[in-house]
């Protein structure tokens, strides 16, 4: 699903963000990316979102070699991915329903398909009754659930989440994690960057730990870190 081979990335400031990283994530995996700030987590996430390209090495996402993919094709590859951010990134002047519909308008889904899928994903995140609410009327946890609904409404094969629980209290965080588990169960690959030690320790999923641009640990059923 996702393969990085000997990927390096140095920013023009001279900061080394990724130093000869190789990793492979299979279909249906649930992977946590952990590590301190500046370890290269966000660069890795940006690379998976096709925002940054490697200086050296190969990046293959969903069967497409990024080196050979024309820039124009990138939007189409992104449609096979769902993205979730720490700050939700909802459109404040659109309702919950419209925020989710937004993702489907872009792929020019039919009206019927749109209604069906949106109802399904809003049901999955438990927000059917809030379809007509605006983001400002929702709690942080609810807003993040809308963002998840939007990320999965087009049936992506990979979901990429960057600190999805970073702004949430433990209770809401668990609710979000349950939804991710649910999504993962249907075969969707999930890659999540997080700082949340409790979640990583309790979930017992694959953990890839980065430090100074290198992979220092890659465990199938790992915890957040042994250092503490």
């Amino acid at each position: 699903m996702i393969t990085l081979s000997n990927v390096s990335k140095t920013y023009s400031t001279g900061a080394v963000a990724m130093d000869d990283i190789s990793l492979s994530i299979d279909k249906g995996e649930f992977v946590f990316i952990v590590g301190p700030s500046g370890a290269g987590k966000s660069t890795l996430m940006k690379m998976l979102l096709l925002e940054e390209s490697p200086d050296k090495g190969d990046l293959i996402v969903n069967g497409h070699d990024l080196r050979e993919l024309p820039k124009k094709k990138i939007p189409y590859l992104r449609r096979s991915m769902g993205v979730i951010f720490q700050d939700y990134r909802l459109l404040p002047d659109k309702t919950v329903y419209e925020n989710v519909a937004f993702a489907m308008r872009i792929v020019e889904a039919s009206r019927r398909e749109m209604k069906q899928n949106i109802e399904k994903v809003l049901g999955l995140v438990g927000l059917k009754h809030k379809a007509k609410s605006f983001p400002a009327q929702l709690s942080g946890g609810e807003q993040q659930r809308v963002a998840i609904a939007r990320a999965i409404v087009n049936n992506p094969v990979i979901v990429i989440a960057d600190e999805p629980t970073g702004n949430l209290d433990p209770e809401n965080s668990w609710e979000i994690m349950n939804i991710f588990e649910e999504i993962n169960k249907s075969g969707t690959t999930i890659v999540m960057a997080t700082h949340d030690k409790t979640i990583v320790d309790r979930m017992r999923r694959r953990v890839i730990a980065l430090e100074k641009g290198k992979i220092i640990r890659d465990e199938a059923k790992g915890g957040y870190g042994d250092e503490d």
């Binding site: 979102l49 939007p75 449609r79 872009i106």
Partner: peptide
């Protein structure tokens, strides 16, 4: 710009 960013991530083409 926020909206543009979201559009980008959900796979909107430049033309769109």
């Amino acid at each position: 710009r926020k909206e543009i960013g979201i559009m980008k991530y959900v796979g909107a083409t430049n033309a769109f």
